[in-house]
Design a protein around this nucleic acid. Structure first.
Length: 374
DNA sequence: GAATCGTGGCG
DNA sequence: TCGCCAAGATT
């Protein structure tokens, strides 16, 4: 039985998996972490401000998204929407346009809705407490803690994937059920750590340590300011924590991407308001069955309502492959010619090469357009 | 609780 | 090449 551990498992005879909060360890950890962060933190755009709105924007963008991807989006977004009022007054279309290519577009819609909530209901003041922040659309448990601690320097806990990994190793938590960001043990420890020093510094330091030192693979323990405190390191188990997650199956979809063309222009289509790539612009897509070289005009008409004449496919061409989080698209470009004038139907728009609809355009659309020379 | 929701970098 | 997964929230 390892010392310093408690839990019902102890009573039942199982291996105890959760360590109760030890204020002395939390304090020592914070004392090692703070100075390390001061010396080693990366120079990131959102660390140059204390503006709660700007930090809010950064936290939404950083959800499930790498720092290097976010940087340019963050700068451009704040130039375009410098404050809550500007974002609240903006069209959703322009917000999605600024988000194009960043992924998880629901975040943009929720951030926009959140700005309207803060502007309309709270007089434009971003809440300072995690409890109030949680009422803002798009702000969940993590983001509420992040904004409260980083922007307002309050000791409100935050646990993301980085923090969960750092703490799982610090405490040598071997039960996968208690290794994730939803584990109560991490939230308790995170609070204790933030209370032991500057919440603003320690919140960022916890994540910075996880991102740059206590990495998922090959952690750099020799560079870690807290290695002397780390139970996993002491046991030589740091590479076993956290345990690998089970992956959900990914389904593959083969689709025609139809370029309905007339005189150098093609039709773009706004996708449905719900589901994958909601409300974003793409080419009309339709299922590709059984290795045919091109879709039938009747299939295109059924999917788009548009009567086309000739349809050309390129049987030799490689499909455009696009991987989403839980599915894969194999897109086979084809061209369908329209004869005579055709007004763009509702939700559709003609574009020439280099033109784009105003609104959100996902990366997969750019891939297809590049293939087609648009 | 599980499924959904993008994209890109890295080993 | 391909699987992994990153400063998660919502339903």
């Amino acid at each position: 039985m390892r010392a310093g551990r408690v839990g019902v498992g102890l009573v039942l005879g199982y291996s105890p998996c959760v360590r109760e909060i030890d204020p002395a360890l939390a304090r020592d950890f914070a004392r090692a972490l703070g100075p390390w962060f001061a010396a080693h933190q990366r120079d990131l755009e959102w660390r140059r401000t204390r503006d709660p709105y700007s930090i809010w924007v950064s936290e939404i963008m950083l959800q499930q998204t790498r720092v290097d991807t976010v940087r340019s989006y963050y700068t451009d977004f704040l130039r375009r929407f410098p404050d809550v009022g500007t974002l609240a007054a903006a069209d959703e279309e322009s917000v999605l346009q600024a988000w194009s290519g960043l992924g998880y577009y629901r975040r943009a819609r929720l951030l926009h809705r959140g700005a309207r909530y803060v502007h309309g209901e709270l007089g434009g003041e971003v809440p300072a407490t995690a409890e109030a922040l949680r009422k803002v659309p798009g702000i969940g448990r993590y983001t509420a803690g992040a904004i409260a601690s980083i922007a307002f320097d309050r000791p409100e806990p935050l646990v993301d994937g980085n923090v969960a990994r750092v703490l799982s190793r610090l405490l040598d938590i071997d039960d996968p059920k208690h290794q994730g960001a939803d584990a109560a043990v991490h939230w308790g420890w995170a609070r204790a750590i933030l209370e032991a020093g500057s919440p603003r510094v320690l919140a960022q330091a916890l994540m910075e340590l996880g991102a740059t030192v206590c990495t998922p693979q090959n952690p750099r323990c020799d560079e870690c300011p807290t290695r002397a405190l780390c139970s996993a390191k002491a046991a030589g188990r740091q590479s076993l924590i956290p345990a690998p997650k089970k992956k959900s199956a990914s389904t593959e979809h083969e689709l025609w991407a139809v370029a309905i063309a007339r005189r150098g222009r093609i039709l773009m289509e706004r996708r449905p308001a719900q589901g994958l790539l909601a409300s974003l612009w793409c080419l009309p897509l339709l299922p590709r069955a059984g290795g045919r070289t091109r879709p039938r005009p009747a299939e295109i008409r059924a999917a788009t309502g548009i009567q086309v004449r000739t349809v050309k496919g390129d049987a030799e061409a490689e499909p455009v492959r696009h991987v989403f989080s839980h599915r894969v698209w194999k897109l086979w470009p084809c061209t369908a010619a329209v004869v005579g004038d055709l007004e763009a139907p509702p939700g559709m728009m003609w574009i020439a090469a280099g033109e784009r609809p105003s609104g959100g355009i996902p990366r997969v659309t750019e891939k297809i357009l590049a293939r087609l020379g648009y």
